[in-house]
Design a protein around this nucleic acid. Structure first.
Lengths: 193, 193
DNA sequence: ATGCTATGTAAAAGATCTTCAACATAAGGA
DNA sequence: TCCTTATGTTGAAGATCTTTTACATAGCAT
């Protein structure tokens, strides 16, 4: 468990509602001991127990963990220090690749003439969008094909099969964002778009 | 556990990253059995285990429990049809502004010389990042100030007080992304950066 | 002071989760 | 074919979480 104080958070939520450990336990269908031990961080509760307890407040698990960490991470990135992922033809520069738990990937992409994410359509979790900075790119999404040029943009659910292809003679530059992030630094490279 | 399918959700996230149970387990510091049992909903993992696993994806617990759905909305946006928000000095063109429930705002921003988001620092929920396309911008985040130029980038927690300011004589162009989205079309305008 | 109730804590037993160590299957190469 | 590697699954042992049951303290009325 890194950084986030589950016990303290639960205690605050409980006290804000002016409930005793026993009262909350009763509503949640667990015992007061469970609440006590969790609040002291003597145990890491099971998701099912935590869910029962939070339901009684009521607070969603998502809310409970929202604001896990007001991360004091790197903010500014010089062009040359961006993490680059390339395979010779495509070049992707990731912003904040090392940030754990960041909510987005932001990528500065360069597609040289002929670059192509491949015939096998990409499909993955999340959403992605971007703006064409220069050049032209052929984008296929869910069967629809469009030729986008500088200033144009796109946004789609990444589970729709998609493909990027530069059929022109000039480099195409795109700034894109993905949610959730498709890449992490240091690990094995994964497929993307 | 009511309603939310922990196992299925984990499996989707894992497969979207093309990881095997063993590979994910290795990165997370748990065993493949744990992943297997969780994905089959044979157990309700402890928060500490789930956290370890999600950290390896990486996905926050909060994100994990925030739902999703597949939307088939507009995908392609011509430059001239992007929703523009301007106040005479700044110009922001939103990608997919009309999409309900989208997870990000992607914005094509133009800061003319002298443009400034204001002395009162911006602070709001979420994260934001971007890439400088041209020109230079002075960015202040959490007390730190940097002058960024073309190719540089930034990424920070939006709760840290921040400010954008073009002190140069040339226009500065940025493509940025915000999560969660800061603007919605037609609705009340919110503060941003 | 005595009795009653409410609070949070904790040891030990019971229940659940995690690991260890297999197993079964499928894909690829020699 | 046989061998090797990679995949996901599972029984039993070990580790952790939850309950049972109790304890200690504090507040309040009699």
């Amino acid at each position: 468990m890194g950084g986030f104080d589950v016990g303290e958070r639960l205690k605050q939520l409980r006290l804000a509602r002016q409930l005793s450990q026993r009262e909350l336990a009763k509503r949640a269908g667990v015992t007061n001991s469970t609440i006590s031990l969790i609040e002291q961080n003597s145990v890491s509760p099971s998701v099912s127990s935590l869910k029962k307890i939070l339901d009684a407040l009521p607070v969603s698990i998502s809310e409970f963990f929202a604001g896990e960490e007001l991360s004091q991470e790197q903010v500014f990135y010089r062009a040359e220090e961006l993490t680059e992922i390339g395979d010779g033809t495509l070049s992707w520069k990731l912003v904040g690749a090392r940030r754990p738990n960041r909510s987005m990937s932001i990528i500065h992409e360069r597609y040289p003439p002929g670059a192509d994410t491949g015939e096998e359509m990409l499909e993955h979790e999340g959403e992605e969008g971007g703006v064409i900075i220069s050049g032209t790119i052929e984008l296929t999404v869910g069967g629809e094909v469009q030729l986008l040029t500088a200033g144009d943009a796109y946004y789609f659910d990444s589970r729709l099969p998609h493909r990027f292809r530069n059929k022109s003679d000039n480099e195409c530059v795109i700034v894109s964002a993905n949610n959730p992030p498709s890449f992490s630094d240091g690990g094995t490279e994964q497929h993307h778009a």
